[in-house]
């Protein structure tokens, strides 16, 4: 159930899917008592902290709040390959 805010309102999306995406974000912020803005800030901070120590691929990071029974933070942060000489 990973979703990204970026592709939420793309033009050719059906309104049913737009409703679904809006709802997912709403429910996550309701359930965690935490606004979408704060979720964005958490993402940024996590990326910042990790990148202090290792070189990560910031464009391919997926950090989201997901839910199964209870909500949890899911992070998939690809590490850039280190090329040895």
């Amino acid at each position: 159930m990973v979703f990204s805010i970026n592709n939420m309102f793309s033009k050719n999306k059906k309104s049913g899917d737009i409703a679904k995406d809006r709802l997912k974000i709403l429910l996550i912020s309701d359930r965690t008592n935490c606004s979408p803005e704060i979720i964005q800030m958490i993402k940024k901070d996590i990326m910042y902290v990790v990148s202090k120590y290792i070189d990560i691929d910031k464009d391919k990071c997926i950090i989201d709040i997901e839910k199964s029974k209870k909500p949890y933070i899911f992070a998939n942060i690809p590490i850039k390959e280190v090329k040895y000489k």
Binding site: K14, S15, G16, D17, A19, L23
Partner: peptide
Amino acid sequence: ELVETGDMMS
């Protein structure tokens, strides 16, 4: 009919 056209959540 709206679910079918994608304009309502199923």
